[in-house]
Amino acid sequence: MNDKDRSGEETGIPKRTVEVAVALLLFTCGAIVVFDSHRLGSSWGSDGPESGYFPFYIGMLICLSSLATLGQVMFAQWRDRKTTFSGAVARRRGLFVAWGPLRQVLSVLIPALVYVLFVQLIGIYVASAVYIALFMVWLGKYTWLRGMVVGLCVNTGFFLMFEVWFKVPLFKGAFDPLWWLGF
């Protein structure tokens, strides 16, 4: 899973940081679960376990296993200090993702998040058409015309399939731009 870049100078987010962050996040999740289960009652009642019994121990196990992972990461760091690598090797070994690929990942993730936001506002169909068109133009270097044709065709297809044939209403958004279609 290590970054495949050949250049020794490649920098990025250290794997250790991400490991620690994810472990801490999991620990928080576990703690929340434990907390709420305790509120519900987490003991073994007269007729079997109460509502919070299983979630309580599940939460505990999440906490414990994330602590263990955290410990492993720390131990590995302490051990690595003893052995010396040349700087570049050490850095490559420990990289979660280099800046270059990260930028590419974000170039997909951020538009996708913006897309979901727009789904919330203007509904699935219009937002999807625009999203497909923009994705093709920006990342695929297609012409605007092609992007718009594909976006429109795909979503007209979906519209016919879901709203017209299958009668499954999809999300129309807070400001429904397609209200005049009557669906």
Partner: peptide, 14 residues
């Protein structure tokens, strides 16, 4: 990929 990827995202959302 740059056509199928956004379509997949849309299908996932639906």
């Amino acid at each position: 990929f740059s056509i199928i990827a956004p379509v997949i995202v849309v299908i996932c959302a639906i």
